[in-house]
Amino acid sequence: MRLRALFASLALVLSSLLVVTATSAPAQADECYSWGRTLSEGASGSDVAELQVRVAGWAGYGVNMAIDGQFGPQTRAAVASFQSAYGLAADGVAGPATFSTIYALQDADCTPVHFSWAEVDGGCGQGGYSGGSVSAATVRTNLLRAMWRAEALRHRMGDQPLRVTSGFRSKACDQSVGGSGSGQHTYGTAIDLVPAGGGSPSFCTIASNARHAGFGGIFGPGYPGHDDHTHVDTRTSRAWSAPSCGI
């Protein structure tokens, strides 16, 4: 009888522990994306690519990190910088604390909390993501990557609010506003940024900090037609020009 009572007590304790463990699991990402394993250098897969999208803006000065699903030294450095920027232990290993921080930074539609699809959809009053240089699905993939780098840029500048004035443009829209009809905006890789209020940060501050946020293209004050905004894009090559800002 005593043994049965002891086993019953142990079963109750184990049951309680299981409940506590289940309820204290890391916060999940709701409708967006949840990571199911700790990621470190040497890992590969779609979950690594999802992580890369969110930390690419922390890879370093002039580094436009590839989203290739391979957790190499560059990804480790980006994760460590992200961790440091958000007050976490900067070990370059993405585990529960890192993922919880990312979950807090993203909305259910996977956009970062300070940017939205409404800001970046088709210009010229067209809306949507069709009529560009790539498919609508690819446009959305590219825009999401640009928004996450903009989130990193924003945090780097002390969380000063930014606003997107132009995101995706169809070929026809791009031509109608003086573009080539085949520029970065038609791929969804580009966004134009301005301060959201009070004139701060300046366009030059945005351009200067964008060099550290994973953008291959940066055009700002002093570049023709860019004195009233800073253009950033995720092209793989580097093209920076903001002469009035010393860039």
Rank of each mutant, 00 (worst) to 15 (best):
F7T: 13
D91Y: 13
V139F: 03
V177P: 01
D233T: 06
V139Y: 02
G216E: 13
G60I: 07
T38Q: 12
A27I: 14
C32N: 12
Q70Y: 10
N64C: 10
S208I: 05
Q28V: 15
E41K: 13
L6W: 15
S166R: 08
P201G: 06
C173Q: 01
D30V: 15
F115G: 09
G60E: 00
F203L: 13
G179D: 01
A108K: 01
S81W: 09
D159W: 13
E50F: 04
L17D: 08
W148V: 00
G92Q: 09
R54V: 00
R140T: 08
G62V: 03
S46L: 08
V164F: 06
W58A: 07
S237M: 02
Y103E: 01
I102E: 02
G127F: 05
F168R: 03
F7D: 11
L162S: 09
T21K: 12
T98Y: 04
G72D: 13
G217W: 07
S244G: 03
A94N: 11
F7V: 14
A97W: 06
Q160T: 10
A80V: 13
S15I: 14
M157I: 07
A56R: 10
A172H: 12
F99Y: 11
S16D: 15
H226F: 00
S200W: 06
S241Y: 10
Y187W: 11
E151P: 07
G60Q: 03
G181I: 04
P224Q: 03
Y187K: 10
A66S: 12
S100V: 05
A22E: 12
R145W: 02
V79S: 11
S241M: 07
R140Q: 09
G62C: 02
A146P: 08
G42N: 08
L39T: 02
T165M: 11
W58L: 04
R169L: 01
L143H: 00
A108V: 00
G158M: 05
A190D: 00
D227A: 10
L193E: 04
R163A: 13
P26M: 12
H229D: 00
L51P: 05
G127Y: 04
V120L: 10
G246W: 00
A213K: 12
F168C: 07
S180C: 13
Y223P: 01
A85K: 15
G188Y: 04
A59D: 01
Y129S: 08
G222F: 02
